[in-house]
Design a protein around this nucleic acid. Structure first.
Lengths: 223, 223
DNA sequence: TATTAAATTTAGACAAGTCTAAAATAGTAT
DNA sequence: ATACTATTTTAGACTTGTCTAAATTTAATA
């Protein structure tokens, strides 16, 4: 069994590797974990002993397949709990992270699977991040920023990057809700603002800044 | 903030005081916590420093009102989670204790209240143990042992004293479920075993030992 | 290539929670 | 009242995860 701290380190290593394809530095991990480089080194030795990472002093480190599995398992729990908090207990997007940070360490395979079933085997959490299935496989890819999508392609709004009340209010004002299907009709050459058409044929103009914070997935649904 | 260990000690002290009106011994607490008396003494000093217990070396100890509040808060969380696991995620009685033992330490007042509301402000957990409300007040009393009840009086099974998987399995095997209405038809003069009739007129024989561990309330319902 | 700067690791220390073994206290029996 | 026994506490040590300060390695620059 692993301690909470070990699980948090493994999760942080996984997330840093995802974000930054290159190898992770001890310092970067220290900053992520809100601790000092010396502490990180101590922990790296411990994780290496447990075969969760490959580690050679001064030569960097990365997750073993065992470590990757653990990271995905913790991620799965975190995102399932986030979805539970939002969907079932009516929390808002910006409140759930810290609570899920605790719940992700609850150790009960059966609980995770029951929660998964209760939520109807969801593919993504409320922020649009994909949830690994019981075999730790992603059945969907991370949503992409609206600003990176092609025009004239049906897209489903699946999350936001910015969770601030201000931005969420902006979304509500423009009636852009989670699950809404939209289409980029045109991108302005001058300021990269966008003309969007909603499924109800409403036209909305969105700044490039806003488009960077809206997460979408290609929509292959009916109509 | 308190560590998981501190919370577990406080909860154990509370439960031992409930069970055994007399003062608790260091040894009893050590056994309950699955540790040694010396470790208990160390922790007692720490808890006393935090004003969670009154403690004089060699003179015994008991909860302060602050400690009692903490115990009730943890108990509230434990029982709400147990009910959630049984009612919402379809766990059985005997599976939930260990999971709730972990979940009870999740720290988020808002989460507890939302869970409480989601479960519709329940007064008792799946074992019939009362759940303190948001002010840490019990709105219902613990039920009484079956062995202390009169014969030929309708009784509702509202809980158990023994939460061991073994006993809960025994209950399931005899189809004695929470909420079931029963009647003591006869008490055997020799070994105090009981002949019970269920609401569906099924007859079940129960040992005195079992009857001591089944909690009931008089039932004044229809029919 | 030699030197310097940055990153990383080691050494030694600390707090939490535990342990064993030994000492102190309380209670009981003679 | 004294000796014995059971209980409880203290003393000293170990582990985990952290820290600071010093040493080491790598990389970069002159």
């Amino acid at each position: 069994m692993n301690t909470f701290t070990e699980e948090n380190y493994i999760k942080a290593i996984y997330q840093l590797s995802e974000r930054n394809a290159a190898s992770i530095s001890t310092n970067a991990l220290a900053e992520q974990m809100n601790t000092r480089a010396a502490s990180v080194t101590d922990m790296l030795k411990k994780l290496a002993l447990k075969k969760l990472i490959n580690y050679q002093p001064y030569q960097g480190f990365n997750l073993t397949s065992k470590g990757r599995k653990l990271a995905l398992h913790v991620l799965r729990k975190h995102r399932l709990w986030e979805l539970f908090l939002v969907d079932t207990l009516n929390f808002s997007w910006d409140e759930v992270h810290d609570i899920a940070e605790q719940l992700e360490h609850i150790n009960s395979p059966k609980l995770v699977d029951r929660l998964d079933a209760f939520l109807d085997f969801p593919e993504a959490d409320p922020h649009g991040d994909p949830i690994p299935d019981e075999n730790l496989v992603f059945r969907t890819k991370r949503a992409q920023r609206l600003c990176d999508m092609k025009i004239l392609q049906p897209l489903r709004i699946s999350g936001v990057m910015d969770h601030s009340p201000l931005f969420l209010k902006f979304m509500a004002q423009h009636q852009l809700q989670l699950g809404e299907v939209i289409l980029i009709e045109d991108v302005n050459g001058y300021d990269a603002s966008m003309r969007i058409k909603t499924s109800s044929d409403r036209i909305v103009f969105i700044s490039a800044t806003a488009a960077q914070n809206i997460l979408t997935r290609p929509h292959h649904g009916s109509k």
